[in-house]
Amino acid sequence: MSRVGIVSWGAYIPKYRIRTEEVARIWGDDPIRIVDVYLVDEKSVEGFDEDAVTIAVEAARRAIRRAGIDPRRIGAVYAGTESKPYAVKPISSILVDALGLSNNVFAVDMEFACKAGSEGLVAAIGLVESGRVEYGMTVGTDTSQGEPGEHLEYSASSGGAALIVGKDGIVAELEAMYSFVSDTPDFWRREGSPYPMHGEGFTGEPAYFRHIVGAARGLMEKYGYKPSDFTYVVFHQPNGRFPVRAASMLNIPIEKVKPGIVVTHIGNTYNASALMGFAKVLDAARPGDKILLVPFGSGAGSNAFVFTVTDLITERQKAGVPTVEEMLRDKIYVDYAQYLKMRKMIKLFE
């Protein structure tokens, strides 16, 4: 098969942040204990006029700017989200016009909890590799929901990450991918319900760990990788503890996971979670680095990917696009009342 891989990446984090202690203050929780449990110091909050669509557009525009390609050469665009502003009406078609793609483009919104954005990556890889489209794009985007006062609120946050897949100008060549899926009801949101339900500890062992480890281990066994092959390892990050523990279960040194951890500073951006960590790693990677990327979606499933960074990375890192690191620092703190307004959780006459 011909070479296929990541041609460009783009990420977007809204500027607003709320500190864990500010949320804890409202609900009478002990902030020190909460931070200790989740390792989330603060989380990103979308502005009042932002949603999963606007976040996706910003991330995708940055990916296109970095790639320096004519957007009309992109033949497929996928949006992975669980925060659709519309129950029926695609984000992907808004992307087509906001990004200036041609009308001859395969486009769909995907849903598999936090894994959908990476499933878009799989689909784009397939179309590019088969030669049916020149470039394909996937965007993981969310304004994640967490019920006020419920523990998800400490992590559910907003952000987006976009990847462009192609054969020309690859910065991270795909070497292998592997999936692991089962019906594991660890986290869900019913139609019309504003906030998700979850199984607390059940989201861990049978869900996150079984699927992440299953996909990573399956990939390593099938394709003959060992932990020392990887320079960086990026997992889905619902909190700061899970990815570290997954690494230890796979005998991967924590130093390889740490550079891709963003959850401590912005919380869990759901579909952008692992992809944001991946973008952060790409911002700093050197030619020859090998990256293991393992997103996870509740319900449940994981995809594992191995990429090798190429010489082109150095040039693409200098595209004048904000890095994830820069966005982590560029922030405006809000209090809980502003947070409720921005997240549109105040009951309004509309």
Partner: peptide
């Protein structure tokens, strides 16, 4: 930047 401008109530267009 790309933002929401008008949201037409709870049921209308964004």
């Amino acid at each position: 930047v790309f933002r929401r401008v008008i949201v037409d109530g709870r049921h209308g267009l964004v």
